[in-house]
Amino acid sequence: MDHRLAGYDRAVYRSVARLSTPALDEPLRRVSDLANFSKLWFLVAGGIALFGGPRGRRAALSGLGAIGATSFVVNQPIKKLAGERRRPDRHGLGVPVQRWVRMPSSGSFPSGHSASAAAFAVAVGGLLPRLRPGLRVMASAVAFSRVYTGVHYPSDVLVGVAVGAVFGRLAARLAVRLRPPASHPRRTM
Score class of each variant (00 low, 15 high):
Met1His: 11
Met1Phe: 13
Asp2Thr: 06
His3Lys: 13
His3Glu: 15
Arg4Met: 14
Leu5Ile: 15
Ala6Leu: 05
Ala6Asp: 07
Gly7Gln: 09
Tyr8Trp: 15
Arg10Pro: 03
Val12Ser: 03
Tyr13Gly: 04
Arg18Trp: 06
Glu26Cys: 04
Val31Tyr: 04
Ser32Leu: 03
Ala35Val: 09
Ser38Tyr: 05
Leu43Thr: 14
Leu43Tyr: 14
Gly47Lys: 05
Leu50Ser: 15
Gly53Ser: 11
Pro54Met: 11
Arg57Met: 12
Leu61Gly: 11
Ser62Thr: 11
Ala66Ser: 06
Ile67Leu: 01
Ile67Asp: 00
Thr70Cys: 03
Thr70Pro: 00
Ser71Phe: 12
Val74Phe: 05
Lys80Cys: 08
Lys80Val: 14
Ala82Leu: 04
Arg86His: 13
His91Asn: 15
Gly94Asn: 03
Val95His: 00
Met103Asn: 11
Gly107Cys: 12
Ser108Val: 07
Ser114Asn: 09
Ala115Arg: 09
Ser116Asp: 15
Phe120Ile: 06
Phe120Gly: 03
Ala121Thr: 03
Ala121Ser: 09
Ala121Glu: 01
Ala121Gly: 04
Ala123Tyr: 10
Ala123Phe: 10
Gly126His: 00
Leu128Tyr: 02
Leu128Ile: 14
Pro133Asn: 08
Leu135Cys: 04
Leu135Pro: 00
Arg136Val: 09
Val137Thr: 12
Val137Gly: 08
Ala141Ser: 14
Arg146Val: 00
Tyr148Ile: 00
Thr149Trp: 03
Val151Lys: 11
Tyr153Ile: 07
Asp156Gln: 04
Val159Tyr: 10
Val159Pro: 09
Gly164Arg: 06
Gly164Met: 06
Val166Tyr: 05
Gly168Ser: 02
Arg169Tyr: 12
Ala171Cys: 06
Arg173Pro: 01
Arg177Pro: 01
Leu178Arg: 06
Leu178Glu: 02
Arg179Met: 13
Ser183Val: 13
Ser183Asn: 02
Thr188Phe: 15
Met189Val: 14
Met189Cys: 11
